[in-house]
Amino acid sequence: MQKRNYDRRIKITPDGKRTVVSFVLLVFFLIIMYLVQPSLMKPSRLITITNGQLCLLLGGIGQTLVLLAGGIDLSIGGVICLSNSIAALYMPDSIPGMILMSLLIAALGVGIGMFNGVIITRFHVQPFVVTFTVNYVLLGIALKLLPIDGGEPPARYVSGLLHNFGIFSLSMILVILILAGWVFMRRTRFVRNIYAVGCNAKASALNGIDVSKVKIMTFALSGGLAALAGLWRTAQLASGSPDAGDALTMPSITISVIGGTSMAGGMGGVVGTVVGAYILRLIQDLLTFLGAKSFWSTVFQGVFLVMTVGVCSVIDMKKGGKKNG
């Protein structure tokens, strides 16, 4: 059974069929949105939504890569909080300074991710245990740096990142670049290896893939992307918070799964995750428009996560049998 899946996944484009479902969902919710509130369907709204979702989207892409290789990263929220706190406190007010600071923060994220990956692969610890504990420590450090919400990133940093070019915003251009980058990357050996490792780590190792290295790379990328997400969040909110970003870990899994990425690894892709981020926002907007109170939105987050993962898992079980009998 394993072998058949393995062949199928490698031959057909990895995120082909599964991504289609997420596009269908997106169109479905767009139509509902149009019927309920046509005034919200205009280009400027797309800018608002993209600015708002880019942080989650970056975290979600990291999560997707880790999930594809068969892991899970619960430290995304912690990295976002830490990066957000550092950027809000220490971002200098000069362009070279800003670039240097951003690079340093991104490097810090990559370092944290690599640490996760090395511990997980070297000592064979479950990914969720390591990343969950690391998340706890990171939240502590963020709280130490920034005891209460605040900090003031320079105005130029905020306006620079939130700049609009006509009907395009910088965030939209970034999303397009990410998608283009992924389409290009998908054909590279590195990304193929991620899929192979997620499908069947043993077979990959026998085929000469350095499984540990691939896994460490996915965690490193996830950490780096989460740090970038924190940098974006700093601009978007124009302040820092030591704990608010922690709530992003769960939606990062949700958008990956709506986008067709399998929790078991080896299936899915980044395009779906991007679509998933927009779907999540559309549903939240619908709820707000229907006058739901904020706690309903919390309930919904959980219901939606469980529902999407449940539906995908049942479909996968019917298709190929469950991994562990």
Binding site: M263, L305, S313
Partner: peptide, 16 residues
Amino acid sequence: LGIPSIVMTLGTNTIL
């Protein structure tokens, strides 16, 4: 349903 325990229980936690 075969939902990974970590996701299921995280979801339940949030719903509650």
